[in-house]
């Protein structure tokens, strides 16, 4: 087991790391230049497609543009993350 000593002593994150994290996130949104209307459009299209196959909780459906590590781990890339609670899978979809 590798013990990370710095973690033992550092109770909270450096404020500069917090700043970097927040900045990166806010820039993804700024640079992507997507409006809330755009996200709403994407959301309603997704709902349309998915409801053909399953019953979902439309009110708790959440879509966000965020960022994630790229597959090769070399950098950070924008990602569309959707949280879609499924109530029931329609039998015709199986």
């Amino acid at each position: 087991m590798i013990l990370d000593l710095s973690k033992l002593f550092k109770k909270t994150k450096n404020s500069k790391d917090v700043a970097k994290e927040r900045l990166k996130l806010v820039l993804i949104h700024d640079r992507a230049n997507v409006s809330p209307q755009f996200l709403e459009m994407v959301k309603s299209e997704i709902i349309k497609v998915i409801t053909n196959y399953m019953e979902i909780d439309e009110d708790s459906l959440d879509i966000q543009l965020t960022r994630t590590k790229s597959d090769d781990g070399s950098g950070v890339v924008p990602a569309l993350v959707a949280n879609i609670p499924i109530k029931n899978v329609k039998s015709s979809g199986r």
Partner: peptide, 16 residues
């Protein structure tokens, strides 16, 4: 402040 981790460094900013 940069040294004690309370200010973004030049590298951080250039990187971003």
């Amino acid at each position: 402040m940069v040294k004690r981790g309370d200010m973004m460094s030049i590298d951080d900013i250039i990187d971003i």
